[in-house]
């Protein structure tokens, strides 16, 4: 690994200033992607900026309406272990427990998962399904980007030079709503999703009032499939309706073949995983008050 300097700013303005003055800087939160990439030579850095000492990036804020703001550097275990998050966002607590094994969860963050912008990122389809937005800060001030618009290509995203992710914001879940993320991996842990599906679903008067669906590992970026969700609106939550939505998700996918799975297998899994994620989201919506 090439030599670099290390900085650990204690405030957002300090971090933004440092980032702006260092074109070859890399941000370090949990380091579970960055250090692997630096070691393998896939990424280089002159300076590594550790953002974990910035208070705002370490906060979890659950508002009275249950909207949720997660600091970009909050390690996954704090979500999994958070009683209120387990109650109000069971899917989020689950996905946080699946990003790497136990020692990785002490380090890895949803913010890092989002900024690494891998097509296979486990948390992103769920964040899209939950209508989350990314709160950014940079030399030009603060802005907010919907998560579905954040990733632009494998490993690339909307972050402009000098900009960093502060937090992920999830709006308050509607009454009678549920969400789920399911992934297919050949092992039971320590694996990258061959296909993942995140879904959310809201019921009103026995019909589906809102639904969102997104997939991982089937396109250059985590893939939001608006048509799949829209097809469910106004429908009764029948197996046929869920299956039809899953078919739309499958049609939107453009998977490739690689060491983790063939395109044909991934395409097949799209429909299976989308339907199963919708079924679990529906079950949670039916249980929710």
């Amino acid at each position: 690994m090439k030599a670099f300097d290390y900085a650990a700013p204690a405030s957002l303005p300090e971090a933004v200033g440092l980032l702006a003055s260092q074109p070859a800087a890399r941000l370090l939160a949990g380091g579970t992607d960055l250090l692997v990439q630096l070691r393998s030579g896939r990424k280089q850095a002159d300076v590594v900026i550790d953002v974990k000492k910035i208070p705002e990036l370490n906060e979890i804020t659950l508002a009275p309406d249950h909207s949720l703001t997660i600091g970009a550097a909050v390690p996954c275990y704090r979500l999994t272990d958070h009683p209120a998050i387990r109650t109000h966002y069971p899917a989020l607590a689950e996905v946080a427990s699946w990003i790497g094994g136990t020692p990785i969860q002490g380090r890895a963050s949803l913010g890092g998962n989002l900024c690494n912008s891998a097509p296979s990122a486990d948390s992103i389809p769920l964040l899209i399904a939950l209508s989350a937005s990314a709160h950014l800060i940079g030399p030009a001030g603060r802005r907010s980007v919907p998560v579905e618009a954040f990733c632009t290509a494998p490993g690339r995203n909307q972050l402009a030079p000098g900009e960093l992710l502060v937090a992920i914001h999830i709006p308050a879940p509607a009454p009678h709503s549920g969400a789920a993320y399911l992934r297919f991996i050949p092992r039971n842990e320590m694996d990258i999703a061959v296909v993942g599906a995140g879904a959310s679903l809201t019921l009103a008067n026995g019909l589906i009032a809102a639904a969102r669906l997104a997939l991982s590992s089937v396109a250059p970026t985590p893939l939001f499939v608006p048509a799949a969700g829209e097809s469910l609106i106004g429908q009764a939550p029948t197996p046929a309706a869920l299956e039809a939505a899953a078919q739309l998700a499958q049609a939107a996918a453009s998977p490739i073949s690689d060491m983790r799975g063939s395109a044909a297998y991934r395409r097949h899994l799209c429909a299976v995983m989308a339907r199963r994620a919708l079924e679990l989201a529906l079950a949670r919506a039916q249980e929710s008050k």
């Binding site: 050949p186 092992r187 039971n188 842990e189 320590m190 694996d191 990258i192 060491m259 983790r260």
Partner: peptide
């Protein structure tokens, strides 16, 4: 080890 997929304790 990520992609060679040897069995873990959970497998």
């Amino acid at each position: 080890y990520l992609d060679y997929r040897m069995p873990t304790a959970l497998d």
